[in-house]
Design a protein around this nucleic acid. Structure first.
Lengths: 349, 349
DNA sequence: CTTGTCCATGTTAGCGCTGCCATGGCCGCA
DNA sequence: TGCGGCCATGGCAGCGCTAACATGGACAAG
């Protein structure tokens, strides 16, 4: 700490400037303990006293010091969020949902990014977070991490969003399998002999879920399962893969694992002169707000990200409150098919 | 606090479970102060001692308690970010840039959302944040707040991102005016007699900047200034306004204040049978990754959000380090015109 | 051999808050 | 009247850490 003192802050030794409980107590003529009770909305304070304390607080502009409170209580009022990237629509929306729910519960969010989805990175992020003052952690595990081998320091409640399940942490996720099934069945119902799939990257949980469910749906319907093509979530990759699909006349229906890739596919179809949905129907996944205005409007699977976030926070706070570990269950949030112009009946070949 | 004790944590009175400096000190046979020096990478510790302490830390799985450190030092290693919404592309990218830069500087992010862009909401968010443990605040002021009347509690360093300037806080922003000028001039250079504008909402700073600069550019070029149409950033609103523009044959060039609205405009043009760019050229702003794959690919203005975030953090940390207020300057980050298929030469009428 | 300096390390006090227990006044019931 | 119980409030200690100062040994210069 430099020796600079700006003067406006009464020289209170090492004091950090802000008025403390003691200051309020002195002004109100009560003990610090009573101030504490008022600050925490406890009962057992006479109305007159409470009022006196409150006005003293107002007069001094008192703000409780959360570091001190955290030190004394062991609680922080903050939940940590670890996310690999904010450039993915779903991650952002999930974060938004978590932030909203956390705020409603009086918690704030400590956001930590990781630059690469490796065990080491996630463990570092977790460590950094435990060093920070947090009560629990939500990991937006959009990338595949084998949580069984990723040993996190014990004692901190954890919830995974978009995780794969099968381990000891609770998982909250959209019902990816149902979504992929809805998308695929929608295209089959339109008469298409089969459905091609543009999957997300291998290391993505959601991509895996959607891929698997797409295949199972085709198998269940007794349809041929075409070769899967992989993208990386970007419209660029969808465009690349779409170019390949556009050259194959037998392709009449494409289910892309997200809206961006679907956009790229549609563009490739346009460029190849194949009409959407006349020649080729396209369905996406996520239902971004823009998707309704693609040309043509994109049929997609709508996820309820707000509910996802809410659920993450609920489960986490429950763990924090009870100090009990939550079982490693997977909580699925329903999804919904939204039909727009990009998917239409099969015209035969 | 419940009476539950999970046993694995040695009964250490009110201790919150985690090993403390005292534990490490005991194990390493040194004083807590020496442990502190090692934990903070201070000099004046013999190598052998340092090694002994480090291995004791490892053995116990010691993590410094940031609440205690913050209480003792008055510093928190955290910067607060206030953002109105995460559903706007620019806000998210800015947040991402801030998070990345903060992390590189060893700071973490405390994210607070506000549900409505009112003074009251922002002040509440600020208060909530000061109650939390933070060293400074970045306000993503995408909505117009009159910062001169929004009196924030003094003593906390503040930087505004996307702000309007003209007050005592430093502002970091993309060079909105240059972007709108580039977009407008690009369309004029293509031969269009004038350029129509779909502006963002009235309460948005960026929208105001872009709107003003568009008008000035037309005036400087001696072109007629058509009536402005207002959207709300969504593709929906762009579509609505686009329907109106599509019906007016004299409209040959449209500059939309963001890519989503441009998307809606293009869709409306398609629906009305007006070719883009044959009949109407469209230019957006933001250059989202998807925009290259709209149909046609969207000409747009690319912003460097990462640099924006970096700059916010740099300026904030400088204030924190020197404990001096930064001047209320506006720092502009350059933007770039990206030309794609949606804008083409005027065909005459 | 003395003196001063420097370095590694220890000691002390306190950051601002809350959990726990003590205190003393008041009330109701026997 | 006596006694137990309840309520508003206060006193005390300590959460885990670090700033400031204290200590004592090594070593160089005089």
């Amino acid at each position: 700490m430099t020796a600079v003192d700006d003067g406006s802050r009464a020289g209170r030794g090492r004091g950090h400037g802000a008025p403390s409980m003691a200051d309020v107590a002195r002004l109100a003529g009560v003990s610090p303990q009573t101030v504490s009770r008022v600050a925490n909305n406890r009962t057992n304070v006479e109305d007159a006293t409470r009022e006196r304390v409150l006005s003293a607080m107002r007069a001094l502009g008192y703000q409780p010091n959360s570091a001190a409170r955290a030190l004394a209580t062991g609680r922080f009022g903050t939940i940590g969020v670890i996310s690999f990237t904010l450039s993915r629509y779903g991650n952002v929306r999930t974060l938004d949902g978590i932030a909203t729910a956390a705020r409603a519960a009086g918690f704030s969010i400590n956001l930590v990014g990781v630059t690469a989805p490796t065990h080491q990175e996630f463990r570092d992020a977790f460590t950094r977070l435990s060093t920070q003052a947090i009560d629990g952690v939500v990991i937006i595990e959009s990338e595949v991490l084998d949580m069984r081998t990723l040993r996190l320091p014990p004692g901190v409640p954890v919830v995974l969003s978009d995780g794969y399940g099968g381990h000891s942490y609770p998982v909250v996720d959209s019902d990816q399998a149902a979504g992929a099934r809805l998308a695929t069945e929608h295209l089959l119902d339109l008469g298409h002999p089969t459905v091609w799939h543009v999957a997300g990257p291998h290391d993505s949980n959601s991509a895996r879920h959607r891929h698997t469910s797409w295949r199972q749906t085709l198998e269940r319907a007794g349809r041929p399962v075409p070769q899967v093509l992989f993208g990386d979530w970007t419209a660029d990759s969808g465009h690349l893969v779409g170019g390949y699909l556009a050259r194959r006349p037998e392709v009449s229906a494409v289910f892309a694992a997200n809206d961006q890739m679907a956009l790229g596919v549609m563009r490739a179809m346009h460029e190849a002169g194949r009409a959407v949905p006349g020649d080729v129907s396209v369905v996406g996944f996520d239902d971004m707000p823009e998707s309704a205005h693609f040309w043509p409007g994109l049929t997609s699977i709508r996820q309820d990200f707000d509910r996802n976030g809410q659920l993450c926070v609920d489960i986490l706070l429950e763990q924090i409150r009870t100090r009990a570990e939550a079982p490693g269950e997977t909580h699925l949030v329903p999804v919904e098919l939204v039909v727009r112009g990009s998917s239409g009946p099969w015209r035969g070949r």
